[in-house]
Each structure stands twice: as C-alpha cells, then as structure tokens.
Nucleic acid binder design. Structure first.
Lengths: 203, 203
DNA sequence: TGTTCTAGATTGAACGCTCATTCTATGTTA
DNA sequence: TAACATAGAATGAGCGTTCAATCTAGAACA
C-alpha cells in the first residue's frame, strides 16, 4: 500500500461517504471507546465494507484524527457566536453550562478522555489533538480577552491564556469527575464551578 | 478455570510475587498504556512467566483494579499527614503542588486518564475506581472540612463536598491540559490554580 | 543423614479468538 | 469501454488465557 490513500474522483460523493464513516465511527467510539470499536463494527454501522473504509482513510488513527478535527469548526463557530452576542460573558456562561451538561453524561464523557489519553500515547493522534487544541484555545482566548476588556481589565496575553487554561481544565476535570464519581452532587459542584468561571471572566 | 484464582499457600512469598507483578505492570502501563501493554510484556518486566501471572490475578483487569487500590492507602496517608501538620492548609497546598507537578509529566499523565476512561467502559474497573474514589474523596473532605473549620467557616457537608470536587476536577483537568497542550504556560496557569484552591480553602 | 513423597510454584507452548489491513474479483457509472 | 467504487475473503499479527509438564521446597520416613 502506498503512503497515500487512493484519491477519490467524485468529490461530493466521496465527501458524503467519508462523512458516513465519520458518523458511524463517532457513534461506535462513543458507545464502545476507541479500542473497543473495531473497523468491522464501524463498517457495519456505516453500511460499507470494512475494506472500503481504507479507500477513504489511511488507517484507524486517521479516523480519530478526522473526528478531532471536526471539533475545531464547531467550537470556533461557538466562540464566534459568543463574541457576536449582545452580552458575550453571559453567552459564554450559557455555552459552558450546556457543554458541561452534555459531557458529564455517561455516553459522552469517556471518549473525551480517551482521545486525550491516546494523544499521550500515539504521536499521530497527538499531532491532531495539539493542532486542534491550539485553534480552539485561540478562539477561546480571543473571546475571553474581549470579555475582559469589555469589563475594563488590562490583562497581558499570558494572563488571558492562563485563565483560559484553567477554565478548560475545570471543564475537562468535571468530565473526569463524572466518571470517577457517578453520584456527584452536580447542583453544588456546578454552582461553585460557575462562580469560579464567572470570577475568572469578571474579576 | 474456577471463578477464583488459586490460593497461594505461602503468604509472604505470594504477596511479594504479587507486588512484583504490580510493580512491573505499573511500569508497563505508565510507559505504554493499559491497552498498549500486553501480559507478555508485563511478565517479562516482572521476571515471571505469562501463564503464572494468572496464579495471582484473575485477569488483566484485576491487575488494573489492584493498581487503583494501591492509591487508596497512599492518598489516605497523605491526608493523614496534612491533618497532623501544624498548618494543614499550607500542608495541603504543598501536597497538591507536588502532585500536580508529578502528574503533569508526560510519563504520568496519560495513565491517570486512561484509568478513568476505562472506568467509563468497563464495569469491573468502574467498581474499583468508584470504591477507591469514595475513600480518597472522603479523606480529602475530612481534611478540607478541618481546614475550613479552623478558618472559622461553618459549611454544610454539601459545600465541603462541592469544594472537594472542584479542587479534584482542577487537578484532573490540569493533567488533561498537559497532554492537550504540551506547551502550556505552567507558571501562569499554576499561579491562578493555586489562587483558586487557596480561595476554596480559605474563603 | 539421605531418600522419597507431596503440594505448591512455575514455565511456556498451545489455543482460540480478534484485529487492522490488503488485495482480487466484481459492480457501477459516465 | 475505462475508470472508479465496492465487497468481502484472506492475511499475518498479536492478544489474553489455559493447561500439561516440570521444577522446587519442605515434610515425613527409614
């Protein structure tokens, strides 16, 4: 096999088939995990032969990497919307709330962590994750910077970056906590979480 | 094979052999991950045949579960030491600092997340992780409660628990961040982190 | 003291299975 | 008809686990 996948000629059809695989893979990965989802499972879910998946993706890793990349556009749009909102701070709080609610669910939480863990193991996935992270964090920094300036703060870029990192860490950490402690008192925990995020944005 | 592993007759020797396996497995899991470490690798690192590992552990999962359990005693001792310190708040800050420094290392970070992710997938590992978490968090809550009371606060148990969850989430989240962003500005990020933790303990 | 026996420790080959990927034959479309 | 899409069997590798054969150590016996 050459270093490149075959180049599909019919672009819209190829994109649609590719998207089919990514949808199916995403479902499988969410349900069973990266290691727990075989190409055979993904092919069944995609309604495509296992061998044919390799027409569109070089290997299994490339599927994960593509899924990671899908997040970029989605989250950049999200931050675009925040900045365009009448009240960007409240828009951000709402978005974070929604994201936390979504990811602290048993069917969503594990994959998020698996992808990170895999990035700590596998250089190809690491490259995709780092690249995506840089873009996503850039978008969040821009948004948080705008919110801070609107609140009259004069932060340097390191302070903005640091605050962005901590908010992001809190988000990831809550996901991990939801798995470690399924009985977590969300009400109290998320109240404190919101207060901290609000302080980081406002004070 | 029966539902139980063979019962070793020579207890001290059996414990030593068991510990040998756990040490070797821990090294392998840290270096290659849970899924990336085969029983064959672990057996070589332990200086024991692959087949014999099953004399001491029911299966591969049981090795992970035993590693998770080792954390309990270690972390409970850690919190014992904090409470016994002349200044428990400062002792806790120091311990958290040390733990963060240790776990935001590339050779330590991924396994922590992998174990959580695996707990989201595998009921046996989930049981071990939940049980360990309950004990460890209990110890931290007790310590944080003591620190809060010494500072003149009257919190209910939910508030203490919530604060403990957030500190823990921050810790786990920083681990994830260290993988997503290897170039993280630790100085600024950890300064903000410490401030937040201190506030949660004191204010 | 030396020998034998027995129970437990240990090895490592074999087993049965699954996996990701390749590749040939066939189908489809323009 | 040619180019591309597609299926699915085959491939080769690796895995976790089992199990029969062998080793070891200590107790019992002469």
């Amino acid at each position: 096999m050459s270093a490149d996948s075959a180049t599909p000629a019919d672009q819209p059809r190829a994109e649609a088939r590719r998207a089919q695989i990514l949808d199916a893979a995403s479902d499988c990965f969410h349900a069973h995990g990266f290691h727990g989802s075989s190409i055979s499972q993904i092919s069944k879910a995609a309604g495509m032969s296992a061998g044919h998946i390799y027409h569109y993706f070089e290997n299994k890793e490339a599927i994960i990497a593509a899924i990671v990349e899908q997040d970029i556009e989605r989250l950049q749009e999200m931050t675009d919307d925040m900045r365009a909102a009448e009240n960007p701070l409240e828009a951000m709080m709402e978005s974070i709330d929604a994201a936390v609610a979504e990811h602290m669910q048993p069917d969503h939480a594990p994959l998020k962590l698996e992808i990170v863990a895999e990035a700590g193991r596998n250089p190809h996935i690491a490259a995709a994750v780092h690249a995506a992270d840089a873009k996503i964090m850039g978008a969040f920094e821009e948004t948080i910077g705008l919110i801070r300036r609107a609140g009259g703060h004069q932060d340097d870029s390191r302070e903005i970056r640091g605050r962005t990192e901590i908010i992001s860490a809190l988000f990831e950490g809550l996901i991990a906590r939801s798995i470690r402690n399924p009985d977590i008192d969300k009400e109290t925990t998320l109240r404190i979480f919101r207060q901290i995020v609000r302080d980081l944005l406002q004070r």
